[in-house]
């Protein structure tokens, strides 16, 4: 059939993969951040708010200093502050992490929209944006064209994935981080404060979520902020963390899957409603969670 051939060629075209890479990046960055807090035993629902703040303050910095890198710096600063604030409430004052996460998300919507109305009465677009990579030789290699012409943070994310993996699994810090979530008492006996590791995890998460937000506003949308532009990406990132069992590399792959479904949703608008393709990743996450839990229980039963 002609129609179905059209669908397939649209799904597996270079454009789809380019789009997938672009929309997977913010989710992947946040998911790597979420992996840190997940390892430290904190259920971090607040990533959504952290992304949104990163997106807004990125644009604000870019607008005030007329430089995208100043925007990036401001976003990172706010990310660190958000991570510290989260840790202060959750780790130091032992508040319920879910309550704080929920409130942080709403707080971020309130703060960014309020400030956006103040600083950008019209619309917050056309601010200096992050540069794109443009290597002419990549265009000449047939398969690699899709990875050219992306915003710099797309490539930085690849490095971050590797660094995060090394950090979590190959350094003593990563070992302590995982222990602070799984066996805090043992870690304390070993003379390392689990609380300190949780603080570090939250701040890392804040930084990575801010990067995610900055990519969204300064990279993907080229210097534009729109109200609530994180648009559930924090929750998707959270799903990726669960999906990947907090493994940074797998979290990146999970984010790519989400990006893929978002991309084909946009590309196939003529064939299927994007609302239907949009819900697929969420359904897969639920199925995966059930699968993970059931598998864990089976193993436990076998061991006993």
């Amino acid at each position: 059939m002609n129609g179905s051939k059209d669908i397939f060629s649209t799904i597996f075209s270079a454009g789809t993969f380019q789009m997938m890479l672009r929309s997977a990046t913010p989710v992947a960055l946040a998911a790597i951040g979420g992996s840190m807090t997940e390892h430290a035993g904190i259920m971090n629902i607040g990533m959504e708010g952290m992304i949104l703040m990163g997106a807004f303050f990125g644009v604000l910095g870019s607008f005030l200093a007329q430089s995208a890198f100043a925007g990036l710096a401001l976003a990172l600063l706010v990310g660190i502050l958000a991570g510290l604030f989260f840790a202060l409430l959750v780790v130091r004052y032992k508040s319920d992490e879910f309550i704080i996460g929920c409130a942080l998300n709403t707080f971020a919507i309130g703060l960014t929209t309020y400030l956006a109305r103040n600083y950008f009465p019209g619309d917050a677009s056309g601010n200096p944006n992050l540069p794109e990579l443009n290597l002419a030789f990549l265009d000449r290699i047939p398969g690699l064209r899709v990875i050219n012409h992306q915003s710099v943070l797309v490539y930085l994310t690849w490095i971050i994935v590797i660094l995060a993996w090394l950090f979590v699994y190959k350094t003593p810090y990563g070992f302590w981080l995982r222990a602070s979530g799984e066996k805090p008492d043992t870690l304390r006996t070993a003379g390392i404060s689990p609380k300190k590791m949780k603080w570090i995890a939250s701040v890392l998460c804040g930084i990575l979520c801010a990067l995610a937000g900055a990519h969204l506003s300064l990279g993907q949308l080229q210097g534009t902020f729109t109200d609530n532009m994180s648009n559930s990406r924090g929750f998707i990132a959270f799903a990726c963390v669960i999906f990947a069992a907090a493994h940074p590399g797998k979290a990146y792959l999970a984010a790519l899957m989400f990006g893929f479904f978002e991309a084909i949703g946009l590309r196939l608008q003529g064939f299927v409603s994007s609302d239907l393709t949009g819900m697929i990743p969420y359904l897969i996450t639920i199925v995966m969670m059930v699968y993970v839990v059931v598998r864990k229980q089976r193993r436990k039963m076998k061991n006993e």
Partner: peptide, 22 residues
Amino acid sequence: PNQIYLIIQTVIIFFMAAQSGF
């Protein structure tokens, strides 16, 4: 901008949630 309402509401939650630990 009316979003100041969301800020006030969530700040109440931050204080309430942190108060026993504080």
